[in-house]
Amino acid sequence: MTDIGYWGVPLAILGGAIRVSTPFIFVSIGECITERSGRINLGLEGTLVFGAMSGYAVAYHTDSAWAGTLAAAFAGLLFGLLHGWICKFPKVNDIAIGIALMIFGSGLAFFFGKPYVQPVAPDLPAIPLGFWSDIPQLQAALNVNVLFLVGIALAFAASWMLKNTRIGLTIRVAGDSADAARALGIDVNRVRLWSTGVGGALAGIGGAYLSLYYPGSWNEGISSGQGLMAVALVIFARWSPVNCLYASLLFGGAGALGPALQSVGISQGYYLFYAAPYVLTLGLLVATSSAGGSATRAITAAPGELSITK
């Protein structure tokens, strides 16, 4: 192997952005669509974990990682629809339901996931995009999973969809003003139901990536809060799917900093390096927030109906 020394750090950030960011991409784009319709689903952490479990289990039984991913998406869809259905009732708080579904989803995943901790399921395939290089480290970093590419395409597709299609417009109107939407004859609850459903399905896929590709096994500690963090990233990304993609890449890349610095011998204070993604995100958030303060709505790009930013 080539000795790459300190080049290992930028390389790890690149590799980390590609490896670690995918679950964030899927969950945050999904949540972005949900929130644009005017609901917030804080429960995607539970959906992600359940997706990881169901994806792994189905992949193990069918011997097909893709079947597993599909199953995870379907399971996520069901969780999303459940959230959407409960929230259509008056006076029900969508944030609280999200928190309930977070523990419900993780609980179910842990409950049914016990028998799948030990078995080894097939992994999702990767595309060796680093074939042109003869540096093995670069080849490894550019070993790109298909879902990562799908995630990138999805970010642009979702942005385009929200801006330019009738469905996108419907979602945005429902999210900005339920009254206006009703005046246009839009069934607000139905729009939100399916937006939350789609968000759940994407979160399920994000979970399948965790268990079927990276780190590539199912156990109860598979998610260290990626689902919750991804939901927070949507606010950071100002409700734009493309920004969600960038935020996820940034977050994944910064997460690789801790191990990479230690591997080149910068080893003191590694806990602080591990906090880098959070510090960086917070710093950017503070720097880019408007100084208007609480008199104006917290963030101007926010969908008007969103309970969390009202």
Binding site: G221, S224, S263
Partner: peptide, 28 residues
Amino acid sequence: CQVIFTGEWSLAVKEAEATNALADQGVD
């Protein structure tokens, strides 16, 4: 011997990242 501390007893993604970082440095 190159050591990487993950800081937690069980943290799947970080353990995977640490292993990758070791591989990138030529650890075999």
